[in-house]
Design a protein around this nucleic acid. Structure first.
Lengths: 145, 145
DNA sequence: TTATTATAGTTGATGACGTCAACCAATTCA
DNA sequence: TGAATTGGTTGACGTCATCAACTATAATAA
């Protein structure tokens, strides 16, 4: 086995901590928690997701997903609409306020990263991007199995 | 601004989710939660940490840290010892069972990663390791400010 | 030395959160 | 049409981290 794998694992875990729910100090942006933000981002990327699809995407039970959507809806970031083809399913849609929030948070983190990486050469930045995409594909592929 | 930064941000966030508390399904290994594991890992890496040092390292309040140590102690992974130089501080030490658990979890994730990256060339693996270290240093440096 | 202040850690009350099981409603299948 | 399935919601519950108040030890000042 490649001896670097465990180094990779360690770095990855530390980085995950930084960008996860605790690293960002429990709140992402105003009144959005990290999980709420992740759910909203899913809706943003792929509009009209059902409750369960969100739950599956984020490893929550369907009742957990219901609760997350509840909060998102209470705060005005998303709305539930009924599917036209199947009366049981809810299509979750993002509101304008929700889109705003996503953009704002995205901007915030990007600025943060930009600053953190200001000493790194553009070439290296490009390399980081490629490497992370390889890594992400690798774990997502494994997830899918 | 480098246009790849936001790609990096996106990948990073997805990866963080995978390796964070939700990705690993709420439990790391047996009865350890992700935060408990992170705390234990800190103690493992740098023995004899105080309660507050653990709290600071992981972005918890001191009472939050107390509770985490409580759980770790209840489960037999760590012990509280009194500092010889200052009667107020607790030195948290890892037990043999704790060391075992850390090794086991480490092994588990390493195996997972090894499998996820089995199609990636050794050269690329090496590159991944370097890149992640650059990234980690960058965010840790920023944290320190 | 004694009184005051600061610091490390713990604890009770609390609120946020996700799960489970039971449930309702819409749909599909027989 | 009736039974089974599926999507979603809800009440009860357990876990968890925080806040504020508190104890105990240490450091500082008088």
């Amino acid at each position: 086995m490649n001896k670097y794998i465990s180094d990779i694992y360690n770095s990855l875990q530390e980085i995950a901590w930084h960008f996860g729910s605790h690293g960002v100090n429990g709140e992402c942006c105003g009144d959005l928690s990290f999980v709420e933000y992740m759910a909203l981002k899913k809706v943003y990327e792929k509009n009209e997701l059902s409750v369960q699809e969100i739950g599956n995407a984020l490893n929550f039970t369907k009742s957990g997903a219901t609760r997350i959507i509840d909060r998102l809806e209470d705060k005005g970031y998303a709305v539930r609409e009924h599917s036209l083809t199947d009366g049981r399913v809810c299509c979750i849609a993002i509101t304008d306020k929700g889109k705003e929030a996503i953009k704002e948070i995205s901007q915030k983190y990007t600025t943060y990263l930009e600053d953190a990486l200001k000493e790194v050469s553009p070439l290296k930045i490009n390399e980081i991007k490629d490497i992370l995409e390889i890594l992400l594909r690798a774990v997502q592929q494994k997830e899918a199995i």
